[in-house]
């Protein structure tokens, strides 16, 4: 029993990282209709930026913020110079996925060429352990959960309460119509890629913190459960991705605790396939589509 409760606690912590990553991923798809597979390698890049910054003397949380922003800026440039022009030239979604897969592999090789294949670590950053409702958390896990929760709340307020956020949703819903209202949709895309890229970077550093040691495959391995979380919530729906992250995080950890930790990724894949079979429009399906924010 306590094994199960502990697994739930660990699931919440890893679910927070999943949610962070899945929301950024889903926002990119929502605003640009691009399934950006390079995302995984960009998370890895963020983890190594974090390493560099910690090495330079920054605290781990400051390194997370700066690393996130750096990957956010790189994402803007990536979309501006490569993906955006390709979309405008009418390249089909499938072609775009191939491009982002290729870029992801190239980036992964660049990372390994620069930092080498050996596993790295931020050192001991997990802090004291705390017990909460029978679950055990490290301080680092709690901080990550808090960061995720506040970023999700901030994103929610941005999308629903501000003119910029509504313009992002309008651009996502109907780009031509948004332009006919005078909205500078290219600038809106830049902002969306900055935000989603920063979420990607934050997820990368947070993941590196929670896994203790990491190497150049960090992000690409994470891609499967993260896409499962995004699909679970309905791709393009930020709230769905938040919940999807939690569901995938908890169920993979619980399955790992009850059967075998090696099954974690398998469980994520099974969830992914089952969802695509049963509810291709996501957990909330059409019932929730009226609430969807980016689609």
């Amino acid at each position: 029993m306590s094994l199960l409760i502990d697994a739930i606690g660990f699931g919440i912590a890893s679910g927070a990282v999943l949610a962070l990553g899945a929301v950024g991923f889903t926002v990119q798809f929502g605003i640009s209709s691009i399934l950006n597979i390079t995302y995984g390698s960009l998370m890895t890049l963020a983890a190594y930026f974090g390493l560099l910054l910690v090495g330079a003397g920054l605290s781990i949380w400051l390194a997370l913020a700066v690393g996130a922003l750096m990957v956010g800026l790189i994402s803007v440039v990536f979309h501006r110079v490569l993906l955006g022009p390709m979309v405008k030239r009418g390249i089909r979604p499938f072609g775009l996925i191939v491009v982002t897969v290729a870029c992801g592999i190239v980036l992964q090789y660049i990372v390994v060429a620069v930092v080498g294949p050996t596993a790295q670590s931020y050192g001991n950053v997990s802090g004291a352990t705390l017990r909460f409702l029978g679950m055990t958390f490290t301080t680092a896990q709690l901080v990550i959960i808090a960061i995720t929760a506040s970023l999700m709340l901030a994103l929610h307020l941005l999308l629903t309460r501000t003119k910029l956020g509504r313009a992002m949703r309008a651009t996502s819903a109907n780009r031509t119509l948004a332009q006919s209202c005078g909205i500078a949709t290219d600038r809106i895309s830049d902002v969306a890629w900055l935000i989603s890229g920063s979420l990607c970077g934050a997820a990368g550093v947070a993941l590196a913190i929670t896994v203790a040691t990491f190497d150049f495959t960090l992000g690409s391995v994470f891609l499967v459960p993260m896409i499962a979380a995004a699909v679970l919530g309905g791709v393009g729906q930020p709230y769905g991705a938040m919940l999807g992250g939690l569901v995938v995080g908890i169920s993979t950890q619980v399955a790992g605790a009850l059967w075998n930790p090696a099954y974690q990724d398998v469980i994520a894949l099974v969830i992914l396939i089952a969802m695509l079979l049963l509810r291709p429009r996501g957990f909330f399906g059409a019932a929730w589509s009226s609430r969807r924010l980016l689609a």
Binding site: R166, L293, L294
Partner: peptide
């Protein structure tokens, strides 16, 4: 067609 922002 598509004369409104559906999800807004």
């Amino acid at each position: 067609v598509e004369e409104v922002f559906e999800s807004l």
